[in-house]
């Protein structure tokens, strides 16, 4: 098993167990109450709809592990989608080349965040708040607010609507990123460094870890994956507009925190994040299949997601409270 985790085994296990139970409860309930919930088609549907949020949540996990945050991922998605459309339609690039260029642009956007955060030592919250506005604004400026790129060739739309080996195409991308990010966080020295930086940035520095480079890597990675999410998003809807991925950063952060990653840094896991994404995705899909509440499903699921996040926050506090109390009683016992 993973060495990094055993110390918090009890806390994480509990958190993840609760999430799994929640997920099972959701599935059982919607299967009973919902119409055509438990079908393979609907399963694929859930996956298709949660790929972008899933991708963003996955790369948000390392960032939050370092104690940072990235509010600009949704805007990066929007900017990348629009630029992809621009490159394909106006610059005449073939979709695959435009796609590669888009990934590079995503890396550059993440690089802006990384440079401001590590070079000038500015707080990530306010930096990414600024770039969130900047990137979205650029997307709007490029499309003049209304321009939408459509009529993509079927070969590209296949990415968002087709199937490969029985699974939706983008599911393979998601799967690839899941494996890659999981390995990164749980099986490489990068993951170690992220945690160390999240727990004690100065301590990590004294241990000879290149703190700035690691943090920069996390933000650039977020940019690249946001660009990838822009591609699947565009392929799924068949259009690239400036408002693509609006507000996705909030769902991504919600999924990460719901998955047990501490916003203070250090503690968390990629599988936790996945469970968080799944809990949100199944909830939103399932509610839309229950006849009685079908019409208000999206509002209801949004509200329940927010409430879940609040619960997770307050719940994450409980182990800490117990630990503090145990420590207190231990030290008072020692004093006696």
């Amino acid at each position: 098993m993973n060495t990094d985790k055993r110390g918090f085994k009890s806390i994480l296990l509990r958190h993840e167990t609760i999430l799994v139970l929640l997920l099972i409860a959701e599935v059982l309930y919607f299967n009973a109450a919902g119409r055509r919930f438990g079908t393979l088609d609907n399963g694929f549907n859930i996956v298709r709809h949660s790929v972008e949020i899933g991708l963003l949540a996955l790369v948000m996990t390392p960032i939050i592990l370092t104690g940072g945050i990235d509010l600009s991922v949704g805007s990066m998605l929007g900017l990348c989608a629009v630029l992809f459309g621009k490159l394909w339609r106006d610059a005449g690039l073939p979709p695959w080349l435009a796609g590669i260029c888009t990934l590079v642009i995503g890396a550059a956007c993440g690089g802006v965040n990384a440079a401001l955060i590590t070079r000038l030592r500015l707080p990530p919250l306010i930096v990414t708040l600024g770039t969130m506005s900047l990137f979205r604004g650029l997307a709007e400026a490029i499309t003049q607010g209304t321009d939408a790129f459509t009529n993509f060739p079927p070969s590209f739309l296949f990415l968002g609507t087709g199937r490969v080996a029985g699974l939706p195409t983008q599911a393979w991308i998601l799967l690839f990123v899941i494996v890659a990010v999981w390995l990164l966080v749980h099986r490489t020295t990068f993951g170690r460094s992220f945690r160390a930086i999240g727990f004690a940035p100065e301590g990590a520095r004294y241990a000879g870890i290149p703190v700035e480079r690691r943090i920069a890597f996390a933000y650039v990675l977020a940019g690249v994956i946001a660009a990838a999410a822009a591609l699947t998003y565009t392929a799924r809807f068949g259009t690239a507009k400036a408002d693509a991925g609006f507000g996705y950063e909030l769902f991504a952060i919600t999924a990460v925190v719901l998955g047990g990653t501490s916003i203070f840094g250090g503690v968390g896991s990629v599988h936790g994040t996945l469970l968080g994404v799944a809990a949100i995705a199944v909830l939103s899909n399932g509610l839309s299949r229950v006849p009685a509440i079908m019409n208000t499903a999206s509002e209801l699921s949004g509200m329940l997601t927010g409430a879940l996040l609040l619960l997770a926050l307050a719940g994450g506090l409980l182990p800490k409270l117990f630990a503090a109390r145990a420590k207190q009683s231990a030290s008072s016992a020692a004093a006696k």
């Binding site: 990094d4 110390g7 170690r192 945690r195 160390a196 727990f199 990590a204 241990a207």
Partner: peptide
């Protein structure tokens, strides 16, 4: 603050450098 990352296992601490 600097010598050991308290929340991490000692094995991870020992290999950190």
């Amino acid at each position: 603050r600097h010598g050991v990352i308290l929340e991490m296992p000692i094995a991870a601490n020992m290999t950190m450098a």
